[in-house]
Amino acid sequence: MKILTRLQYGGSCHIPAVPDTAALSVRGVSFLYHGASEETLSAVDLDVSPGERVALVGPNGAGKSTLLKLVLGLEQHTRGTISVYGNPAHTCLHRVSIVPQRSSVDWRFPVTVRQVVMMGRYVHLGWFKRPDGEDRDRVETALEMMEIGHLGDRQVGELSGGQQQRVMLARSLAHDADLMLMDEPLNHVDISTQELIFHTLERLTAAGKAAIVSTHDLGILSVHFSRAVFLDHRVIADGPVREVLTPQTIAEAYGFEFHKDYPEGTSNDRLAH
């Protein structure tokens, strides 16, 4: 009964993480949207270790969101394998959390901040089970960490963009995932929220969690990330920010001509002509 397995969700997952494996391992993954002629992603390889904070960089339409969707199971990849902590993706859903792109959320829907953060606990509950004291405690802790405890009973639609993003990160904290995905979390976000988001991510990754943050904002890379992956349907560059953040990589990822009048020593023969 396929429909019954599709209906099942939540509850604890007893499959342990494989020790000493990547938090996320993407191998040769390709993806073709139905009816599209060109692959959105082609032969993508990516390994993220526990404790790493990786920026996924590229222009709009480069496939950043698609890659995150494949990890989550929102779309099915056409080729390749994805594993999370040594197990095939989607084996243990509580290990992966998402802060989705703002546009995919119905902000007008009448839910309170506390209800939204509680949604992070659903994966541990499943059908029929109601939140207990521990779930409520974790929700309050997450609210406090994001400094929105005083907004708990407010409608999420009434908040500012920055506050809404704090709510989504608080939900990820309540979810207690080991691999945190964030899709363009910095759009429409004020500076203090941005700092709080990164401060929180730094603490979490220092404690061994892994985080992948998609962004098209190059300005934040060198300050907040140790590693950047440039994506334009395929991986263009992957490495420490100071090594991969070069005019050539940016030009290639964002699809414009690299000009020779950049300072000496940054040119790349492959692209310079």
Partner: peptide, 26 residues
């Protein structure tokens, strides 16, 4: 009553719903 929290999450944020194993479609 049984599906209240599931209806809530699929209505508000379908991506998160899928991420935790729910099918908004179903």
């Amino acid at each position: 009553a049984v599906g209240f929290k599931e209806l809530l999450v699929t209505s508000f944020d379908p991506s998160h719903a899928v991420a935790i194993g729910l099918s908004p479609e179903l």
